[in-house]
Design a protein around this nucleic acid. Structure first.
Lengths: 207, 207
DNA sequence: AGTTAATGTGGATACTGACAACATGCTATG
DNA sequence: CATAGCATGTTGTCAGTATCCACATTAACT
């Protein structure tokens, strides 16, 4: 260091050390509090005490940062719901219900990430990774659906439609449950009750 | 006009005449092609051959413009689905199904408007009008639901949950059917088929 | 030690949103 | 018909931002 008396921050290194991950974390924080539109690369750099163009080394531009967040989010969502399926035991119907519930809960519990992956301006720039994760999601889900169909009240419904209906319900629930307009408009909206009701209706058990 | 030979544009008036509506139309056009993020007040002004701050007279800022679009969109959505209900005849179950279908179709047919009303950054600034429209929507829908419950396979399901499930399905279908990631990932996705299937499952008829 | 790639800095440019002061045309009222 | 008031549009300006570039510092590897 050229300055001899660097007393105030002696552990200050030129390299930040973990800028990429901290950028993502800070971005998710901002998005959760103020929304995607309020995201600013310069503001992020300021928060992390780093020059205004340091983020460029890790993310080509803002869309690139959001893409990275979207990728991590999709992976997290996938593992969370697949894990929940395995934890639910061997009964296929129960497993499927657990997956749907977990996926909805993930969206509610990860508002910021959910907002990112549901943002058309972000998903427009989705790369191959994201599509592979979604393909894997389809594999896992359709397997669970096929296993559960025998116990369902709608055994003849095509798998693709059941899958799509599940995705639609998950995404829609995420939208409605996190949208201030709906939350303020609707009568006494309890997320868990709604999720249970929707899962019951999506995958009704015979007994 | 101070310039005597104003040959090129003799019908050019100082006042644009209909700037507000054309701003909205141009904005919806841009959003439909490039998304909400690509919207720029200055670009809109350029497109309409108007000074860069002329839009300020009609919309205090960008959020204000988007709010106005959202209001019009919600009203249009409401009237479209309510009208479809009345056109469907007297059978309550058929009426409800027609409303759900029309609402989903509205979203698919009005991608740009749907994208606006589903954008959290926009709905965060929603005014009282929007909430009143949604309240009216709830009134209309719950009336239809109550009428249809006797014919449904789930007569005991609470009205609020049926309504919420309908909203969730509509919003979710809009998200999935317009999201490039899902459209490219999913196997042969036909919007009309999916809508029919989901409505059938949402409001099953006895016969 | 010396080379090289990765990472961070500072400056320059262009675009954007927002504001303020001014210009213009419409309209109502005397 | 004059003129005052108002709605609308214009020009000028400023701060914040994204993005690109040349350069500095560090780490890693030979």
């Amino acid at each position: 260091m050229s300055v001899a008396y660097d007393v105030l921050n002696d552990d200050d290194t030129y390299h930040h050390g973990n800028l990429r991950d901290e950028l993502i974390a800070a971005a998710v924080d901002v998005i959760g509090r103020e929304g995607v539109a309020a995201l600013s690369l310069r503001a992020l750099a300021r928060d992390l005490d780093v020059s205004h163009s340091a983020p460029t080394r890790h993310f080509k531009n803002k869309a690139d940062l959001l893409s990275a967040i979207m990728e991590e989010a999709y992976e997290d969502m996938l593992t969370t719901t697949v894990d929940a399926g395995y934890l639910a035991g061997d009964n296929p119907a129960h497993r499927l219900r657990a997956m749907a519930r977990a996926c909805m809960r993930w969206h509610v519990d990860n508002r910021a990430l959910s907002e990112v992956i549901r943002n058309p301006d972000v998903s427009r720039t989705a790369g191959r990774n994201v599509k592979e994760v979604l393909a894997a999601f389809y594999i896992h889900s359709s397997r669970a659906i096929l296993g559960a169909q025998g116990q369902s009240r709608n055994p003849d419904r095509p798998v693709e439609f059941v899958y799509l209906n599940m995705i639609v319900s998950v995404v829609g629930a995420a939208s409605v449950l996190t949208d201030p307009v709906y939350v303020e408009t609707l009568p006494a909206l309890d997320a868990d009750e709604l999720i249970d009701d929707m899962v019951d209706h999506l995958f009704p058990l015979k007994d």
